[in-house]
Design a protein around this nucleic acid. Sequence first.
DNA 1: AGCCTTTGACCAGCG
DNA 2: TCGCTGGTCAAAGGC
Length: 424
Amino acid sequence: MEPPDEYAAEEWNPAAAGSSSSSAPRMNPDPLIDPAVMMIPNSQPSPTTGSYYSPPFNQDLSFLTNSMAAPTAAGGYCDSLPFFHGSEHPAGEVNNLHYFKHLETQDLDGGFLNLPSQQLPIEFELPVLSNEFIASASIRNDYIDVDFLSPADLSNAHTTLPPSQPNDHITSQRNDHMYIDGAADHVMEEEKRASSPPMGGMRTTEDGYNWRKYGQKQVKGSEFPRSYYKCTHPNCEMRKQVERTHDGQITEIVYKGNHNHPQPMPNRRLTPDSAFAQNEMDAGEGCGGGTSRGKNEGLDRALSEPILTELSPTGREKRFSAFDSSEAAELASPLHNHAAEDDEAVEENMADANEVHNDATDLRRAEDCMVEPSMSSRGVREQKIVVEIETEVDILDDGYRWRKYGQKELLQMHHAWMLGEKTC
DNA sequence: AGCCTTTGACCAGCG
DNA sequence: TCGCTGGTCAAAGGC
Ligand SMILES: [Zn+2]
């Protein structure tokens, strides 16, 4: 079969392999987690839908509007969004929840937050059903304070999605994980590019790693076929699942596991764009005015910002964002076990030394799952990136520096915020 | 030759 | 137990 074009090879066969049944022995999806989700619809303010105009939180989120949608000097908008969300096991099990927040910035065209100087229609999906925790946020210069509310407080905090934006924003997978979608048309392009393989040879995506497709399947929940890839590096267990539209646009990417090796590819140099993206990430201050950095600089390519979320079946998850599939990928890919390296950095900033320690330790045995959805339905679809951690502890080797700002054991939690610095 | 994709079959959870 | 489902395997073929 010939793929129509570049992105081709990957999941081209519409026929979708007939899959049959399954269960993945190695990956054990954990049931669960419906994290509170903060959504940022493309550009549809819908007060009635729970956009933050009428925040379910005690706290006023309007400030977000200001900071997030503030036009930057460069003419862009600095949209930083706090992603926070947490959940706990229903059964009342003791699960540690780690809350991370990360400031994101997006391009106007990104669709993610392409709101002119308007308020950002930030929507919150706060399923209380699963003991979600919600947070109220307040923006500071480079980070957002998030206060978490107890489930009880959330009783009525559930907001709905805008009519026009069905549940596309949230993808519920088998584990009932909720994924945040980011908009990502641009991302798709990136992805396409990345995925367009040199064919026959090693496929390398922008994440810098080489993957071999080992299966494809039409998953019930999604309209598009899902392709399964393994990292070609010997002994590397890293896998990823990619869902693409028929036009080759990636709608979702899920990374599972960790790379136990460094990024193989040399050509992964920082393009202005990527560099920028990184800076963005690094700064962690996406906005507040801080985004003058590359975002607007020559980045014709709008940076759509997929949201990166790490989900932990065990009840912990991290949610952060990337800027486009590329960046997202980069974000994701760095999940190799060198975590230790990153850990250092992370640890440095950890508020809770002990926690950090644990994280570092657990990192090694951790298995991550990253979902990088990028609903590409042109303009409508949003890109989602979810990192799912199947370990006891969150893995922080996403290439960025995080400051833990929250962990929850039962109802206790601490707070931390992402430093936004890439440790690489 | 080596590595890739394709694709149907197989397997193991789960209801 | 059965059927469904998602994930993986592995043979076949392509580049
Ligand atoms: Zn690998």
